[in-house]
């Protein structure tokens, strides 16, 4: 049980960065950014490759920079080239497959054998004892969360939020939506890549298929978190993604351990949960309408 909890907390915190990125792109900017899968692997590939070359610390900012570059491409396509936003993400994502292979030296996976990682170096400091992996992951997430809360409170951050909230108003208040969308997507993809970078170094490997479906998992965490913590301020949103991500990983770990649901089915279950959660308002409206129609027809019949 302790093992499950520990794993859930570690992975939950590390993958929370993806949900944090989606909070920024999907909730704040109101853009479904499908670059996510690719930039997660990009972060992983850059991070593990650099760690393999003996630069585990440099690997993290480098991975974030690479992620930001991927976000920039998606933003450029949709703001300057008129590519619909979902398609822009898919196009970048497809292109990233090749870029990711290149980052891993034209191989579909890279493994760290005896090279140092940020985790192995952190272990030597003795902080956190047996929980050192969790402590480091939590510190990274806390730093990213604080940064996001701080950033969205600055004038630039307010402009980014307004871009997703009311685009008409943004243009009328001297904010350039092209710029704010670009900034937003660069930051969100940097966060996704950071998640990949940390996960890659923890697992000591990067794999070209490591990001498949991560955008849906990230959304699931976001929705779970918002259901538990609620929606509203930025602070609440950032807290929600961490809580949601930990809950998701906890369920994942329990399923893995007990095999209540065959582990192969987990992606399908996740997809169904996300689809239902996003469809909930529509389903609710439809149910209410049906109920009214039914009540009306009964009234007529009784007359």
């Amino acid at each position: 049980m302790i093992f499950i909890t520990q794993t859930a907390l570690e992975l939950g915190f590390m993958y929370a960065l993806v949900s944090m990125a989606l909070f920024l792109s999907y909730r704040v900017l109101d853009i479904a950014d499908l670059t996510t899968d690719g930039s997660f692997v990009l972060g992983m590939a850059v991070s593990v490759s650099l760690a393999a070359a003996g630069h585990p610390f440099l690997a993290v900012p480098a991975a974030m920079l690479a992620g930001a570059a991927a976000g920039f491409v998606t933003a450029f396509l949709q703001t300057k080239m008129g590519v619909p936003s979902i398609l822009a993400g898919i196009v970048t994502n497809t292109g990233l497959y090749t870029v990711n292979l290149m980052a891993m030296g034209w191989s579909s996976n890279v493994n760290l054998l005896k090279q140092e990682t940020i985790f192995s170096l952190f272990k030597k400091t003795g902080i956190g004892g047996g929980w050192y992996e969790f402590v480091l992951a939590a510190a990274v997430v806390a730093a990213a969360g604080l940064f996001l809360v701080w950033f969205l409170g600055t004038r630039l951050g307010l402009s980014v939020r307004a871009t997703g909230d009311n685009r008409d108003m943004v243009r009328a208040s001297s904010v350039n939506p092209v710029f704010t969308i670009t900034v937003g997507l660069c930051i969100s993809n940097a966060l996704t890549a950071l998640s990949g970078a940390v996960v890659g170094q923890l697992q000591k490997s990067a794999d070209i298929g490591g990001g498949t479906g991560i955008v849906v998992v990230g959304l699931a965490c976001l929705i779970i978190g918002e259901t538990v913590i609620g929606r509203g301020s930025v602070k609440r949103g950032v807290l929600a993604v961490v809580v949601g991500s930990v809950i998701y990983r906890f369920i994942y770990a329990v399923v893995l351990k007990t095999k209540i649901v065959p582990i192969e089915c987990l992606k399908l279950v996740t997809a169904v949960i996300v689809a239902f959660a996003i469809a909930a308002p529509t389903l609710r409206t439809y149910a209410a309408l049906r109920k009214r129609i039914w009540a009306a027809s009964r009234k007529k019949g009784g007359r």
Binding site: A162, D165, N166, D168, M169, V170
Partner: peptide, 9 residues
């Protein structure tokens, strides 16, 4: 009147 302000801010 909804066009000039950001509702969630």
């Amino acid at each position: 009147p909804l066009r000039g302000t950001a509702p969630h801010m």
